[in-house]
Nucleic acid binder design. Structure first.
Lengths: 350, 350
DNA sequence: ACACTTTTTTGGAGCGCTCCAAGGTTATTC
DNA sequence: GAATAACCTTGGAGCGCTCCAAAAAAGTGT
């Protein structure tokens, strides 16, 4: 146990008989320093156990952290992001871009209350904010005068955002199923609060939205439009609001709506839990019921049967988000296209 | 675009007619400040667009980042960690502990060359180092005088480490298969460099280890011991060194070693790729061949059939690692127990 | 050996903050 | 209304560093 305080540039300089500035140069601009001096300094550093300039001082002086922060939306924690097939693919993309830029990726958590102070205090040069329009968060981020990008929300022309064309995706999903002949749908929408699935029986008006994000409304809109195109009304379709990954989602669908032949979801994860429940019950997919996922995660290709899903380039989205933060240019609003990937989980109705 | 420089505590103080220290108190110890003064300061802050003390100054003054760093081992990048079922579960555990401690989780990348400088410069109060015994990295971390934990490597009594009892796990895996009657094994060991699977035909001596980590040797040892207990020699067992996730692993096994009835792996991910290949070929598991995974990831329970695997509490390990870093107490070496979870991927030989 | 150029080294300034001892103010008590 | 206690505010010190203008040293040419 060594209780002397950790050495600083000045200490090393004293031992080596040079000034603080020279020691700094040895570590940051070695070519500026005569080689014998450099060696003397290095020897002194070694002797003192000095391992290079303390990042704290450097950060204050340079004004940069060389890190970008990723903050999950709403009530989600980083752990939820990692658990989710979509979330981890997104983070993967971000991490790739950080890697390329030589930056660190900080995963910052924030409960509802601490969120804004986290934004204020995070040691980052910019932020990626998960799909959230929380106005407080945005003003907080703006105050900090750091570049940031919002995912899956359009916050106006002054704010960087990247989102997918979820409405078209939803439309394509319905179109595909309708073309196969389906008339009996169930929609799994995303519950943004914690708790068991909420079943919204057919009925008029805005249902299924306890506290939705923009992407939820868009997809629901797309579903509605797609249904309208085949002379069905979303008002006649049951909507189940469920947390992705919630294992009981499938059970609710099969128990409550046995007549449904097609299940529309808003995430692959939801679709996967439905598939899991189908296996448990010996229900054949797609013979008995068709299932469509959303996002096109890597997992969607590996299920049995592989999932038909509305895919987009999640990794690319994460990567682009990180690049936008790093570049810190004019605000852009990017809408990424989606693609219906038809695989084995959809077929004609029974 | 506002080109005046960002305001500081002093600026706010000047506008509010109080000292820098009082402004600091308003943000950090509001209870110490008379309420009318506090309001005046808050008004001034609002007017100037000051959003609280700059973290840069705070960090230098306080000496803490309130963050811990996670660095993947060897040549792996953060992206690889997130891709791997094991890795992401580990990070999940770390993130849970960080969340509890109100700390940020920094995912720090480092190529072979930049690794040590990354350690030197990362804005963290401590590190979790992936399963690696790289001595340079350890000295680097020690130099920085920050607490750190190494996973899956014992680096001596002065260094925090957490590892599982992989040898016993491997032993149990072999024991289980032998008890079922298996005599024809193939081992999938982990290739730590990139590239296609390397097949090591039966033969004496240390095979299958291009550049192994401690955990690789331990598990191989456990396999050897288990085989010896049923009068088999690991020297007679083919060993295939393969990167987890490498999709061709299964093909190599089935093509080259059709006589094998039991496949031992060192990770669930490897086992899962074998299962995938079996599906592709119409090979029934476990009727035709038994497969054992390693680690007991969440994924292992969801395969078809569910995977028999040597499980341990990965999330708990990540969480504990983060706690050890945060607590910064006496160095400890922790060995976590493993458990053989028998599921559907193992059965009697054909 | 001197003037001049080039290469190295120096140390002050300042990044923005929090701590803390000391001084100032207000409230309470007798 | 003075003495005492409780509460607030102040501003110097210092965290460790990098930048930069200027000084010093080394090199070059005549």
């Amino acid at each position: 146990m060594n209780h002397t305080k950790t050495p600083t540039l000045t200490d090393v300089g004293r031992v080596a008989g040079v000034s603080r500035g020279t020691v700094s140069n040895v570590f940051n601009h070695p070519d500026l320093v005569r080689s014998d001096v450099r060696e003397r300094v290095e020897a002194a550093a070694r002797q003192l156990g000095y391992d290079g300039p303390d990042p704290r001082g450097r950060v204050l002086r340079n004004g940069k952290f060389n890190a970008i922060g990723f903050m999950p939306p709403g009530a989600y924690a980083i752990a939820d992001v990692i658990r989710s097939p979509y979330g981890r693919e997104l983070v993967l993309g971000v991490s790739l871009a950080c890697d390329e830029a030589g930056a660190t990726l900080s995963l910052v958590n924030g409960t509802e209350e601490t969120r804004t102070s986290t934004i204020r205090e995070a040691l980052v040069d910019g932020f990626i904010l998960g799909h959230s329009v929380d106005i407080d968060l945005i003003t907080s981020a703006q105050r900090r005068r750091l570049p940031f990008v919002i995912l899956e929300s359009d916050a106006g022309p002054d704010i960087n955002s990247i989102r997918i064309d979820g409405r078209s995706g939803a439309l394509m999903a319905v179109g595909h199923l309708a073309a196969l002949g389906h008339r009996h749908f169930v929609i799994l929408s995303i519950r943004r609060t914690s708790g068991p699935p909420i079943v919204h029986m057919p009925g008029k008006g805005k249902r299924a939205i306890t506290a939705g994000f923009q992407l939820d409304y868009e997809r629901l809109d797309g579903f509605a439009q797609g249904l309208a195109e085949v002379n069905l009304s979303i008002d006649d379709v049951p909507i189940i609001e469920t947390t992705p990954g919630e294992p009981s989602a499938g059970a609710v669908v099969f128990d409550r709506f046995p007549e449904a032949t097609a299940i529309l979801t808003m995430s692959d994860w939801q679709a996967i839990t439905v598939l899991d429940e189908a296996v448990r019950r010996g229900i054949n997919i797609p013979e008995h019921v068709s299932v469509v996922g959303f996002d096109g995660t890597a997992e969607s290709a590996r299920t049995t049967p592989p999932l038909t899903t509305v895919a987009h380039d999640i990794i690319g989205k994460g990567r682009l988000a990180a690049q936008m933060v790093n570049e810190n240019g004019q605000p852009r609003q990017i809408i990424m296209s989606v693609e219906l990937v038809v695989r084995g989980s959809t077929g004609p109705p029974r």
